[in-house]
């Protein structure tokens, strides 16, 4: 069983949702970022999304755009991102790590070679923002061969006709992008999320994680009642940007984890 499947099985047994926390690799520098990454499981992150820095993050709002700029200015690269995952795996064998970003750095690496190298580093899944099902055929078979999950994004614009097309490639879990917009901006209403998640469940048995616009423990708790996971990114990244230390973002993750863990009690 993959780390991702195992983790969701454990969460189910504990009758709770998971906290999925996002940070950008190499933000604000390698050492600080590695401290945050290594500290995430103890702070209560159940799954980790690690951003692959890219010069042109077209689907991201200001917080994550700036994180990518800081990461690149500090020498960040796809190679560095894999090195960080390998380093993390020295101390944690169980927490799933999902890389999230844009396709060009992977294409430049070579899709097949990258899948193999990512698996060696200990990567469990990939979220590629600009690789819709229409183009995913050039990457997905290589990921399957390397036992890496391709996590698909569904959005408020994914209707019942579109969902089966998107979900055809899916494994691991489904990431529901709860607003039609960029990261770190507006938040969806509870009823909108509820409706969307139930629609997704008609088409798949995979766990559903909800992201975009979740900033506070209360919001995370609300989502945790509706889905298998709540994704928080921009809020953590913003705290890291303000303090430039590993402690403050980990403290926020702790608060978010409490929100998620207490949601179904």
């Amino acid at each position: 069983m993959s780390r991702i499947a195992k983790r969701f099985a454990t969460l189910k047994a504990e009758n709770r949702a998971g906290l999925v926390s996002f940070i950008m690799a190499n933000d604000p520098d390698r050492a600080t970022c590695q401290r945050v990454l290594n500290g995430l499981p103890a702070a209560g992150a159940d799954l980790i999304e690690l951003g692959m820095p890219f010069t042109d993050p077209m689907a991201d709002g200001p917080a994550i755009q700036l994180a990518a700029q800081r990461a690149l200015a500090a020498g960040g690269s796809l190679r560095g991102t894999l090195e960080m995952v390998a380093e993390f795996r020295k101390t944690d064998k169980d927490t799933p790590v999902i890389l999230m970003g844009y396709y060009n750095p992977i294409y430049a690496w070579g899709a097949e070679k990258f899948a193999g190298d990512a698996a060696l580093a200990g990567v469990d899944g990939l979220i590629i923002v600009d690789l819709p099902p229409e183009e995913a055929g050039e990457l997905v078979p290589h990921l399957r061969a390397a036992a890496i999950d391709f996590i698909v994004l569904t959005t408020p614009t994914s209707d019942d006709a579109r969902l089966p097309v998107v979900l055809a490639n899916a494994s691991g879990f489904v990431y529901y992008v709860s607003i039609a917009g960029i990261t770190g901006t507006g938040s969806a209403t509870k009823s909108a999320i509820e409706e969307a998640v139930s629609r997704i469940r008609h088409h798949t048995d995979l766990p559903v994680c909800v992201g975009f616009g979740i900033k506070t423990p209360d919001q995370a708790a609300e989502v945790a009642r509706l889905a298998e996971g709540a994704v928080v990114g921009s809020a953590i990244v913003s705290v890291l940007a303000e303090t430039k230390s590993a402690e403050a973002p980990l403290a926020l993750v702790k608060e978010l984890a409490v929100g998620v863990r207490e949601a179904r009690r």
Binding site: E134, E135, L153, T157, V166
Partner: peptide
């Protein structure tokens, strides 16, 4: 599918695909 040889295509966020 919008391809000129290996070039072209539709590499956009899923939110935009239906549109």
């Amino acid at each position: 599918r919008g391809h000129f040889g290996i070039f072209g295509g539709r590499y956009v966020a899923e939110t935009l695909m239906p549109l």
